[in-house]
Design a protein around this nucleic acid. Structure first.
Length: 712
RNA sequence: GCGGGAUUAGCUCAGUUGGUAGAGCGAUCGCUUUACACGCGAAAGGUCGCAGGUUCAAGCCCUGCAUCCCGCACCA
């Protein structure tokens, strides 16, 4: 099909996109080593590794669009541009997805051979990532596939292990017997971030405990309670002294309780007296630690009562609670029940199961020293946050950081290279299987069966992907320039990358953090499978073209703000792609035979106005691009193309090209060609396919548009 | 309780250093005009949450208030 024939039909993204992407890929220009010209200054973005447990969703569409805009712009500005793609095994997330799949098949991971399970999930993940990769290509992403990384690649695991060892040697990682958040359904512990708070209305039970009345929402934990705690300043309980023993009748018979005075008690709450269950409550644990009190497990890992519960042993706490209350009532120990008690319970962020705090021996990262270093850099302004308020949020989090539990009791992840003493519980990092007995007590050791929190490894992603410490890539491209990701994972990922990056390499891993918001459905609701309102970006690109989807995701979407994705919106930008196509048709048809070489014939005042306008736009747009204000740049281009170039300039050109002198005609043709040239270049980062396609018909064309110079 | 954000046209949202309010979609009227009906033209629509303050000038800066959203912590 000749150029003109093609232009005579409406723009057809379906016919165009795959062909153009192949042109780009075959050119080799996605790889910074192959870019034309002298390029000294690098520009690097590490793509957030894509979860490989499903297919591409609208949020990914936004990531691919924004990052591609950045790298295409920088490539056109002569940077040695690297956008490094990756795929994420996504530890717990993927395991949850896979468990659901197993459930549907009537299977369960419990009782499965861990190696077998691992292999199944690996196959599942690899087949997903293959699919996602082709979907990323459909979005037009110009990333360097030759440098693609997977979070379970050998060198990733090796580096993560070395980091673990180094932190262990530096006393930044320790094995601790501490209270952790345990999900009884998923049978693993979590860090504090995998917890979702939920407000519920519950019963608050007022129970008689010897001479006291205690208030509790969880009577099922009270079997082992033998410490009764009150505030030292509470006048009501002045006559009781610290460590005083009191004999009293309790759920399963008489016990001896010990009075403890502790300032953690809120005198206003309930009766100002409580009993503690250190094994299953954070605050209680802390009180017990302070006073060196006994701790006893009441509830097992499945949420069932242990033998300490006497007749209730083996019962699930949910079922046991009313029975326990019944028994207490019979014994006359229930004073009253407040049925309207509003409080917050902590739940598993994935399944909503109530978290059961448990004391467990786990690996923890000491966060304070890491956070302090990060705070220094952030407060120094060494990392730019877009939008800015994320900086404050980060600082607030870092200033209040607590130690990070990095052990997970799941198979899908990077194994923790450590040995645990069976006698004293001491943990030892051991990369090469050298440890044969406990270094502390000489007791027998076992291999740690746990895996790392997936964020512990992805927190090292920027320097790992670039081949720390020896690779030339690491020297060239680290620290990276922009980390573009979802605002949601500012703590999970971004902040930890800063801390771990600083710790290992001594440098902040990126200079700018660009955080986008959530992509919501047209009504502004969060998309979810259960609500059935998930928008598949590929259906939209199929229907309206990838360019329409991309610019539709960008215009009017400020960083950090969530975006309601309405189909009509994308449709509107499809019309824009077509408009651009028709503008090109008009200009190319009316400038046949013209070349763009040489200067302009003498210009008159009128042309000068147009040229000034165009120059002002270019300056403005370039400034927006430099400041990552893509939503503004795109909108200005849109407005200029449609309401200036098409509505005004082309309309008056019809008259000039019809009735003008030869000189006027030539001058106008040149103006139109140069304007189209500039528009194609500046729109290219946003709408790479249609611009590249039109570019192929331009008289000024020498190389692919993707490596043309930005026209300023 | 601590922290962050939002409040601008019917809807979704822009508005960069303060200088007479913008876009898309929708709704109205009129056009098959040879780049484009995936289009063209015309008109409609906002006391910029409320109350003060700074300023020659405030959607934008300051103070207070209201409503909504999010994160963190927490009282058993």
């Amino acid at each position: 099909m000749s150029v003109n024939e093609k232009l005579l039909k409406p723009y057809n993204p379906k016919e165009t996109e795959e062909r153009i992407y192949k042109l780009w890929e075959d050119s080799g220009f996605f790889n910074p080593d192959n870019l034309p010209g002298e390029r000294k200054e690098p520009f690097t973005i590490i793509m957030p590794p894509t979860n490989s447990n499903g297919s591409l969703h609208a949020g990914h569409g936004l990531v691919m669009t924004i990052e591609d805009i950045m790298v295409r712009y920088k490539r056109m500005r002569d940077f040695k541009t690297l956008w490094l793609p990756g795929f994420d095994h996504a530890g717990f997330e993927t395991q949850v997805v896979y468990e659901k799949k197993l459930e549907k098949e009537g299977r369960t991971r419990f009782g499965m051979d861990p190696k077998e399970l691992y292999k199944e999930i690996l196959d599942f993940t690899l087949s997903n990532s293959k699919n996602i990769k082709s979907q990323i290509k459909k979005m037009g992403a110009s990333c360097d596939w030759s440098r693609e990384k997977f979070t379970l690649d050998d060198n990733v695991i090796r580096t993560v292990h070395q980091t673990f060892k180094r932190m262990y040697d530096d006393n930044l990682i320790y094995r601790g017997n501490k209270i952790v958040s345990w999900c009884p359904k998923h049978q693993t512990s979590f860090s504090d971030l995998e917890i979702k708070d939920e407000e519920i209305i519950d019963n608050l039970y007022y129970l008689k405990y010897g001479p006291f009345t205690i208030a509790t929402a969880r009577p099922e934990t009270k079997f082992g309670d033998k410490y009764v705690v009150m505030h030292p300043d509470d006048k009501r309980y002045k006559k009781y002294s610290d460590k005083q023993k009191i004999k009293l009748e309790w759920i399963n018979g008489p016990i001896e309780a010990t009075v403890i005075k502790d300032e953690a008690i809120d005198m206003e709450f309930g009766t100002g007296v409580m009993t503690i269950t250190p094994w299953h409550d954070n605050t209680d644990f802390e009180i017990a630690e302070r006073h060196k009190l006994d701790k006893k497990q009441i509830i097992d890992e499945n949420g069932k009562l242990l033998s300490i519960a006497g007749e209730f042993v083996g019962q699930h706490i949910k079922k046991a609670r009313p029975l326990i209350i019944e028994k207490l009532q019979k014994k006359g120990l229930v004073e009253k029940i407040d049925e309207n008690y509003k409080h917050v319970v902590r739940t598993c962020y994935k399944c909503g199961t109530t978290i059961e705090p448990q004391i467990k021996s786990q690996w923890f990262v000491k966060m304070k020293p890491l956070a302090e270093k990060a705070l220094l850099k952030i407060n120094n302004g060494e990392i730019v946050y877009i939008p800015e308020h994320y900086k404050k949020i980060t600082i607030h989090w870092l200033e209040n950081i607590i130690d990070w539990n990095i052990s997970r009791q799941i198979v899908w992840g990077i194994p923790i290279p450590a040995k645990i003493c069976t006698k004293c519980g001491y943990g030892m990092a051991d990369l090469e299987n050298n440890v044969k007995k406990c270094e502390k007590c000489s007791g027998a050791i076992v291999e740690d069966k746990d895996t790392f929190d997936t964020w512990f490894s992805s927190g090292q992603w920027p320097f790992i992907t670039l081949g720390y410490p020896d690779s030339p890539d690491f020297k060239t491209f680290y620290p990276t320039d922009v980390m573009e990701t979802a605002g949601e994972i500012i703590f999970f990922w971004v902040s930890r990358m800063i801390m771990l990056g600083l710790y290992i390499t001594g440098k902040v891993p990126f200079k700018t953090v660009y955080l986008h918001g959530l992509v919501l459905d047209a009504k502004g609701q969060k998309m979810s499978k259960s609500k059935g309102n998930v928008i598949d970006p590929l259906i939209l690109t199929e229907k309206y073209g990838t360019d329409a989807f991309r610019i539709g995701m960008v215009i009017g979407n400020t960083p950090g703000t969530s975006l309601a994705l309405a189909e009509e919106r994308i449709r509107g930008y499809k019309n824009f792609a077509n408009k651009l196509w028709n503008i090109a048709r008009f200009i190319l048809e009316n400038t046949k035979g013209e070349t763009m070489a040489g200067g302009f014939p003498e210009r008159n005042k009128f042309d000068e106005t147009l040229r000034t306008e165009r120059r002002a736009l270019l300056k403005d747009v370039t400034e927006d691009m430099e400041n990552l204000r893509f939503y503004l740049a795109a909108e200005k281009l849109y407005h200029y193309v449609w309401h200036n170039l098409a509505d005004k300039i082309i309309e008056e050109s019809k008259v000039i090209l019809e009735t003008g002198t030869n000189e006027e005609k030539t001058r106008r043709k040149q103006f139109l060609l140069h304007t189209l040239d500039m528009i194609l270049k500046t729109l290219h980062p946003f709408m790479p396919f249609v611009t590249e396609e039109i570019w192929s018909m331009m008289p000024s064309k020498k190389n692919l548009l993707m490596v043309e110079r930005w026209p300023i």
